[in-house]
Design a protein around this nucleic acid. Structure first.
Lengths: 210, 210, 210, 210
DNA sequence: TATGAATGAGTTTTCATTCAT
DNA sequence: AATGAATGAAAACTCATTCAT
């Protein structure tokens, strides 16, 4: 799924250029964070990678941390919106889960650096820093749990495992698959990604038993 | 499961005292890393928490990072040994997975700080630092995959989902449960832990379908 | 001989100011190194003496050591250029040696701190650090040796003492005179400096014999 | 010239062993100082090189600096005694200077590490630390100056160059030769050492002129 | 004497952030 | 908006020295 291209605000060439610098910085930051980690890079590395002047980073962002926050929120809000949209469709819960799985895996295929940053850096940061991210992550869990709960109500899913735990398990499987690709513990590639979308659902919905 | 208490080597009071200081430092580090994060604490915080002089930390460990490494390896090696031992038992694959799930969750109940550090801090370090940790993590995946593969051979498990992916999914579910408890996204407590041990296996082996 | 005053490059106030801060740091470092020794001072002493912020030192120089290197090379390159220039003149070898002796002693009169740093600190660093300085020092020896060799070819100098050794002896006498002044083992003062210029040549060229 | 072996104090085996440990430490320190420089080594390096326990170094020496002092003074006092002894002989001043030159160069041949330490580390240390060493160095200058002065009185040496300056020049030539060998700027070897003893006197007494 | 664990002050370097232009 | 020099707090790491045994 392509990056959600915000409609180019029609505010003249100047503003467009400015917006593009801001975008450059975010894009540079993704590459640098993915390569060196949030703590392993300097603000000047971001500026260099983005091809902008050092000081400009601070024109667009208050702190280094805000850059990470922005990257996370941009992407995560898309995910949250998608979960909500999918849940509103008239399809089986299993199908809904497949769509979410597919979306996240496609996101990784499309921009592995960004997903790496979100998974590796943001979660850990949540430990030391604000709870903002945790609330957002919780929102995703809740959205998925809502899908599961609806599946339970309709009789599609068993009810002894709580919807909350099921949601968390579902997300855990996907995140671990991404982690595997990120750290080269799992072979990556287009066919593997395609297969994984199905494996996630097969494992979580059908179980491993024969 | 209690920390593998090495038999108190009878090597005189001096050596014993020395070993205890080293232990104190490791124990202090766990608490500090859990509370403030690896990057959020200073070496002096570790020394203070451990009740030893600053310099002593560097007498026992080359770098701050080596402390984290040591904590991770101590515990992870126990996990690896356990996985191997469980796989050698004459029980169903499903039972084996339950034992592993139970062990990890018990580890968290017994020493949540340590598990928090391993899950939250080590993975991030794996990104920037050496691949040592990754190799160890990979070993765990492999051990679990071996169990699944044996289950597939015996006809207990389906074979369309690869053993490798199944192992990763299984571990992903457990890790996400721990993450949930760590960040208070999931209610914790003795009965929840007990329930979760079963949920993990129910989800992965039986699936969510009704 | 005055410090080679580079013509103030007309590059705008900003660049000029920047260059002047860098110069301030170097000048402060000379005073501090001379007073307390390279190892006896902190980088903050340099910053304080130069009247700049601590961090600015690291904006202009990678390490404390690079400051020392810069001071040495700036001056030594002037010496090397001078030796080459003097050798090209159409004067007696003895005159050439006098000019070099005079230049070095004048350098000391003009900026005793800098010469002290070069003689006292750089040599020691040459031991532990890179061979860069040694190569430069060797260049000076070679330049002087070339002058002596030409003197030998013309019949002005005896040939049983090698030019190489003679060069080294000549430089050794000068350096020891400076060392004497630096450590107050030899009375200093304008007339003493003037006298020493002649003594160096008298000793090396004519010998002590009656 | 062999290291002045102090007569083995007849105080029993224990004291002898103790003395030997102290000697071991000094000998180890010479090697370490020569290799890494005074500031570039740790006290533990000295202990390791000497093959003694860390703490023992502090049993025999108050500070790290005292070790350097001891090494310098041991050797320098021998030099001072020798200068005095030579001056009392009934030989030409030129012969006396030859003997001193020969002694110092032999000292270097016999124990280059020790001479390297004295020349490279002690003189520089004189800058930051006490004036003790300077007084001793001054004593050597004075001793040599006395020889020159006597040579001037007897009509052997010219009088326009002061005895003080001549002494300093003489020592400067020798020190620079040693520096050349130490830093590989001058080819070393037995025949070169032998030749240098003569070159020093030829240069200083006879001069370079044809 | 001999050992090596224990202490903690000291120092370089890093780097996020600010600011003048 | 854009630049990059300037600031200074922060922290890891070093290592001489002390001390208990």
């Amino acid at each position: 799924m392509p990056k959600s291209e915000e409609p180019p605000k029609v505010t003249g060439a100047r503003a467009a250029a400015a917006e593009s610098k801001r975008r450059q910085i975010l894009d540079g930051a993704v590459r640098v964070f993915a390569r060196q980690g949030f703590h392993g890079c300097r603000v000047s590395d971001i500026a260099d990678e983005a091809g902008v002047a050092y000081g400009l980073v601070y024109h667009y962002f208050e702190t280094k941390n805000e850059i990470l926050d922005t990257l996370f929120l941009e992407r995560w809000d898309i995910l949250l919106a998608l979960i909500a949209e999918i849940d509103s469709r008239e399809i089986a819960a299993r199908e809904k889960l497949y769509e979410i799985s597919a979306f996240i895996i496609e996101s990784y295929r499309h921009d592995p650096d960004l997903m790496k940053v979100i998974i590796v850096e943001v979660t850990r940061e949540a430990n030391s820093f604000g709870r903002t991210h945790l609330a957002k992550i919780s929102d995703a869990y809740d959205g998925i749990a809502a899908i599961v709960a609806r599946g339970q109500s309709s009789g599609e899913f068993r009810t002894d495992v709580t919807a909350q735990f099921a949601a968390l398990a579902f997300y855990g499987v996907i995140e671990q698959a991404l982690t595997g690709w990120i750290f080269d513990l799992l072979p990556g590639g287009d066919s593997e990604y395609e297969q994984a979308k199905h494996f996630v659902v097969a494992t979580i919905c059908d179980g491993l038993h024969a």
